[in-house]
Structures are given as structure tokens and as C-alpha cells.
């Protein structure tokens, strides 16, 4: 069971993500965005950062990176694919998740701990969590305001006190099948009580376990 942690030029949470996945017992490797063969992997994480400088629109250029064909294939095959923060934006631009992320309601970068509530455990990211469970996870984003005009997203995690104006308080959403998830806060940053919270572990563990299920 091996996770591909995709690195676009400008991604910056890749090393943190690999560190946490490995600490939880998963195999994880960095994969450069020009890679065209991910057949050795059983799941993928698109980590946070500023892929291609976030120029034009966040995620707009990244969706054309060669590696994205493989991410689309993995998603279609039912393997777990999770986009964190900037990775969430890329998944939206690539059409793997509905909607888009726009500038925060207050037009400022937000870097702080937020509380989210588990509202749907049917996704690969929330599979190990309890419905109604509250998690403290850091949020670090400028374009973190989720919108889905004329639709209602499948929210799997909801902000307890919406910090950025997201529709339906969405902190994380999933596709219908539940194997593709975008999450705006950073679960990998909530993996060590010394740094303030280890509540993200249950999410990362759910993701790792789902990889085994989807493979079986």
C-alpha cells in the first residue's frame, strides 16, 4: 500500500504530508508533477502549497500537469484521492470535485486552529471518525471559501464557526462515491499534541485504511 504525494512546482506541504503518512505506518513517496505513471501507487494526496504560484487562479495551471491524467484514472478506479488546501483547489479545477474555492470572506489569509464537525463518515477521509465528532485542525489559506453555485455539496466536515464564508460551512467535501475528498484545513498539521492538536490523525488513518479497502 503506497501513497503518491504529488509535488507541483510551488507545492510546499509535501514533506510534512509524507512525514505524517510514514509516521502512521503508510508507505509514501513524493511524485513530481511530470510523472506519467502512478501504477505503483494505491492512493494519492495532493498536498497544500501554491502550485504554479497560484497564478491565474489557484489550481488552474496545475490541472494540466502531466500527472493529473493518472490522478483522474485513480479516482475513476475508486482509489482514495485526497486534496488538502491547495490540493483541494486543484481537484476542483480538474473537475474531480464540484465547485470552486474563492477568496476568504474577509479577504485575508487565515492561519489558525479551527473546529470542524464530522457530518458524513462515508468518505475515505472520514471513514475512521465518529459522526458528530469535533476535531481541532489548523486552517491556512487565502482562497478557502468553498462555493458551489446552484448546487449543494456533499459536506463531510463542517466548520463549527465558519471562518471564511464557505457554502454550507464546508470544510471538506467528497464526490458521490466518497473516494475523492477535498479538505481545506490541514489534517497533517494536527498530528502531534506538542504542536497543539493530534485530531487530524483519525482522518489520515481513515485515508490509509481506505487504501487497503479499495485495493481489496
Amino acid at each position: 500500500m503506497k501513497v503518491a504525494v504529488v509535488v507541483f512546482p510551488g507545492t510546499n506541504c509535501e514533506r510534512d504530508t509524507v512525514h505524517v503518512l510514514r509516521a502512521l505506518g503508510a508507505e509514501a513517496d513524493l511524485v513530481w508533477h511530470r510523472e506519467t505513471d502512478l501504477s505503483a501507487f494505491d492512493g494519492a494526496v495532493l498536498p497544500g502549497g501554491f502550485a504554479h504560484g497560484d497564478y491565474l487562479r489557484t489550481g488552474a495551471i496545475a490541472r494540466f500537469s502531466p500527472v493529473m491524467d493518472e490522478i483522474v484514472r485513480m479516482a475513476a478506479a475508486g482509489m482514495p484521492v485526497v486534496g488538502i488546501c491547495n490540493g483541494f483547489q486543484v481537484l476542483c479545477e480538474a473537475g474531480l470535485l464540484p465547485g470552486a474555492l474563492i477568496a476568504n470572506r474577509d479577504l485575508a489569509f487565515i492561519c489558525k486552529m479551527v473546529d470542524v464537525e464530522v457530518v458524513d463518515t462515508g468518505s475515505v477521509l472520514t471513514a475512521a471518525a465518529m459522526p458528530g465528532q469535533r476535531l481541532r485542525i489548523p486552517l491556512n489559506s487565502y482562497e478557502g471559501n468553498y462555493v458551489l453555485p446552484d448546487g449543494s455539496p456533499r459536506v463531510v466536515l463542517r466548520y463549527v464557526d465558519d471562518p471564511n464564508g464557505s457554502q454550507d460551512g464546508a470544510a471538506a467535501i467528497a464526490n458521490d462515491r466518497g473516494n475523492v475528498v477535498g479538505i481545506m484545513p490541514h489534517p497533517e498539521r494536527a498530528s502531534d499534541a506538542l504542536l497543539g492538536s493530534s485530531d487530524g490523525v483519525v482522518l489520515m488513518e481513515g485515508f490509509i485504511a481506505s487504501m487497503e479497502v479499495s485495493h481489496a
Binding site: H52, G53, Y55, L56, I61, F64
Partner: peptide, 14 residues
């Protein structure tokens, strides 16, 4: 204009 430079690169890539 770093943004313009990056977008040009991406267009050439495509």
C-alpha cells in the same frame, strides 16, 4: 510580471 511569465510557460507547455 511573474504571473504573466508563469502563464506563458504553461501555455508553451500546452
Amino acid at each position: 510580471d511573474p504571473q504573466g511569465t508563469t502563464v506563458r510557460r504553461a501555455l508553451v507547455d500546452l
